[in-house]
């Protein structure tokens, strides 16, 4: 299970990183989103991967799941969600203000685009 989990997380992170390094705003936003998914999965696994661990303390149970990573992931998801929403709006604003969705638009030679 560990190997599969690690591969998936690593693949997500690699894809996210690749997209985040692209030159247009949309892939960058998608890349950052993928990266945050990978991070959430990673955080989730930091307590150790167990199955059938009890979440609530009960008598006679010795196998507990670590509750903290779940709380951490929940916080990270909420924050990541807000940030993604913000960056999508921002990317649209950049597109509207500059008439181009290049991340590094050179000033003085902005392409004039027809509004469709």
């Amino acid at each position: 299970m560990e190997a599969l989990y690690a591969t998936v997380t690593g693949f997500l992170a690699a894809s996210g990183l690749y997209l985040a390094l692209r030159g247009r705003t949309f892939p960058v936003v998608v890349g950052l989103t993928l990266l945050s998914y990978a991070v959430n999965l990673f955080l989730f696994s930091t307590g150790g991967l167990t199955t059938n661990g009890a979440a609530v303390i009960r008598e006679g149970v010795t196998d507990y799941a670590d509750p903290l990573p779940q709380a951490l992931v929940l916080t990270a998801i909420v924050i990541g969600f807000a940030m993604t929403a913000f960056s999508v709006i921002l990317a649209m604003r950049v597109r509207g203000d500059q008439g181009s969705d290049q991340v590094n638009d050179q000033r003085g030679e902005e392409p004039k685009e027809e509004k469709s």
Partner: peptide, 15 residues
């Protein structure tokens, strides 16, 4: 907006 996008993207990666 452009400086802002760079700032936001970098900080998201940082987070």
């Amino acid at each position: 907006t452009q400086a802002g996008f760079h700032y936001v993207a970098l900080n998201l990666a940082g987070s």
